[in-house]
Nucleic acid binder design. Structure first.
Length: 260
DNA sequence: ATGGTGGCCCGGCCA
């Protein structure tokens, strides 16, 4: 199973690049964030022509998340599934090939003293609560998306530049760890050194200067993590004409237990 | 330099 996540920063602006990327990279499941589309505008037909079923959760101008799968897509749920506010279409889940997959776009937080920072912490707590309420230990689960949190200082180009800023603060890192402590593994660093990033600001040539962060995560349950065979960022997708400010993250998972 | 770039959609918000 090839599982990917990509914040596309407007699917309307990015559709040609996304379609081409699907053809070239052949993910079985991909989670998209920041589609910035209403459900009626989501190009389900174009994805269907490429072999993907899809579920989208968006109301227009901001946020918007989607799941695409070519290995089945059952029981889609838009929002948190427990009546908690997902603050503008930030989570969609479905069962794909026996794995309960969630595409998430965690609120940015803006700044430590901003009300949206508290909403970010609450949102991560709600994500954990949703897992507790809808999934059992032992289930195959993936939570993939733009978490707007760099898990540790090795996921930031210069930790000193972010003192007092969001994405690196201890409370949000703790909130992310609490999600992982449900039973999810961030396997990326098993296959990559520190300093491999998934997002670079559009401004000031940050991408070409290597000033990025790893905030796009693929979190997978124990059974899947034990079968992970690789993880990478497709930096090429951040290059060229009209890129998203995020690059796709890909994790490959073997179908059977390795070495047995 | 308290900026910068890009998306939405046209003045200002959001990242």
């Amino acid at each position: 199973m090839r599982l990917a996540t990509w914040n596309v920063n407007s699917l309307t602006a990015r559709l040609p690049r996304v379609s081409q990327w699907l053809v070239e990279n052949q993910p079985d499941v991909i989670c998209l964030q920041e589609t910035k589309q209403a459900d009626a505008k989501f190009p389900a037909d174009e994805f269907a022509a490429l072999g993907y079923e899809s579920a989208h959760h968006g109301d227009g101008r901001w946020n918007g998340v989607a799941l695409l799968s070519r290995i089945g897509l059952e029981d889609p749920v838009r929002g948190f599934s427990n009546d908690l506010d997902d603050h503008g279409c930030r989570i969609v889940g479905a069962t794909c090939g026996g794995v309960r997959v969630h595409s998430v776009y965690v609120p940015n937080g803006r700044s430590l003293d901003n009300e949206f920072y508290d909403i970010k912490l609450q949102w991560l707590a709600q994500l954990r609560a949703m897992l507790d309420q809808t999934c059992k230990p032992g289930d195959s689960v993936a939570v993939c998306g733009d978490f707007n949190v760099a898990p540790d200082d090795g996921d930031v180009w210069d930790p000193a530049a972010f003192v007092g800023a969001t994405h690196v603060s201890e409370p949000e890192r703790a909130a992310l760890r609490h999600v992982e402590e449900w039973g999810l593994h961030d396997v990326f660093r098993r296959f990559n050194d520190p300093g491999v990033f998934s997002w670079w600001d559009y401004r000031a040539g940050d991408f070409h200067q290597g000033r990025g962060m790893r905030i796009d995560l693929v979190l997978i349950s124990e059974d899947l993590a034990g079968r992970a065979t690789g993880a990478r960022v497709d930096r090429d997708a951040r290059k060229g004409q009209k890129p998203s400010d995020h690059a796709p993250v890909i994790v490959d998972i073997a179908d059977a237990v390795l070495g047995s």
